[in-house]
Amino acid sequence: MDWFYAINNNRQGPVNPETLARLVSDGTITAETLVWRQGMAKWEPYGEVAAAEGLDVPGQGVDPDSAICAVDGKRYPKREMVEYEGRWISAGNRDVFFQRLREGVPLDTGSIVPGPYGYANFGRRFVAKLLDGFIVYVLNTVLQMLTMPLFASSFMRDPEAIFTYSIIIQLIGIVVGLSYGILFIRKFDATPGKLALGLKVLRANGDKLSIGRIIGRYFSEWLSGLILAIGYLMAAWDDEQRTLHDRICDTRVIKARA
């Protein structure tokens, strides 16, 4: 499984377990270096991860007759391993490794990236959503006030004008919401509310959201709200703090600062 590491808060990687071991050996990765791989809830110092998972410890000598397993990144004696095209696999991981080969799974692919500070928790996302909601509400209110005089004289003569006005108000709300998201997320990877809380919304592989995905995410939020807001509440117990619309659109909200 590939690893990411942070140098001066800049994400590096992905690197496979063998490369990670070499980086530890040459001093690029120290005990204090933050590292992360898929399955970890947040970035942690390499020294703590190494101690917990049996990985190479910085500054500690290694047995020359041992090697790093390409599957789990742990060091084993070579007599207990098999070599395949220059990669070493421990006996316990041999079936997993060759099963991946049979299935055509790439062995050196990138992973989901939460950033050096981890995923945004429910509370932080909730406050950011409140801020964004207030800003969008103010924008909608201003536009509604500007639009109302155009229909005021028609309300008394044509009752259907009220229905038409309500439809226009709904369309204005959609246009404002979409424009708000597209403008800020495309430029800053975050809406003003998320920027204020130090959050970013990205693809699972760390890429920026396309305009199409931003639009899809906007309408997916309707579904999150329609089911008694359970779609939003999912972020409170999901292992990657995802909401329903995050799952639908393959997005993650990460913390850009501590």
Rank of each mutant, 00 (worst) to 15 (best):
E53T: 07
R11S: 11
V142K: 06
S25P: 06
G231A: 04
N9E: 03
T19L: 02
V71I: 13
R79L: 07
E48Y: 06
R252F: 15
R37A: 02
R157L: 00
F155N: 03
D207Q: 13
N140V: 04
L209Y: 08
S153C: 06
L183H: 06
T33P: 07
S90H: 07
A235V: 05
D158Q: 03
G115I: 13
I68D: 09
G61R: 14
G216D: 14
V105D: 14
Y137S: 11
V113M: 11
I29E: 06
Y76A: 02
R217T: 01
D246K: 10
G115S: 14
P58I: 10
L223F: 14
I168Y: 14
A152H: 03
F134R: 00
N140D: 11
G47F: 03
M40K: 07
G173F: 09
A50Y: 09
Y137I: 04
P116D: 12
G173S: 02
S220E: 12
W88H: 09
K208Q: 10
I168C: 15
G13Q: 07
E53L: 05
V201Y: 02
R100F: 05
R100T: 09
G92C: 11
I172D: 08
A52F: 08
T147V: 07
I135P: 00
P114T: 13
G173A: 04
P149A: 04
K187E: 13
M234A: 15
L178D: 11
N8M: 01
L34T: 10
D63E: 05
G92E: 12
D158R: 02
L23M: 14
E103N: 12
M40W: 09
Q12V: 05
M148E: 13
I248W: 15
L23Y: 15
C249I: 15
L150A: 12
V82P: 04
Y119H: 06
L226H: 00
Y218E: 15
G61S: 15
L202S: 05
I185T: 02
R186F: 07
V127D: 00
T164W: 02
F188P: 13
N10K: 11
L20E: 03
A190R: 05
A67I: 04
A6Y: 10
D207K: 13
T28M: 06
W222S: 14
I168G: 11
A204Q: 11
E48K: 14
Y84S: 06
A120R: 01
F122I: 03
R186A: 05
C249N: 15
Q170N: 08
M81G: 07
A256G: 08
R252G: 09
D65C: 12
L178A: 15
V49R: 03
K129S: 10
F151M: 06
A91I: 07
S111D: 10
P64L: 00
E83M: 04
R75G: 05
L183F: 11
P17D: 04
T30L: 10
R213C: 10
V142M: 01
Q12H: 08
C249H: 12
E48G: 06
I174W: 12
G47Q: 13
Y180I: 02
S179K: 08
I215Y: 04
A6F: 13
N93T: 10
R257T: 08
G133K: 03
W237Y: 03
F4D: 11
L143P: 01
L233C: 12
K208V: 09
W3R: 01
Y165T: 07
R157K: 04
R124P: 12
K208A: 12
P192H: 01
G177P: 03
I254S: 14
P64R: 00
R22W: 05
K78D: 02
L183G: 01
G177H: 04
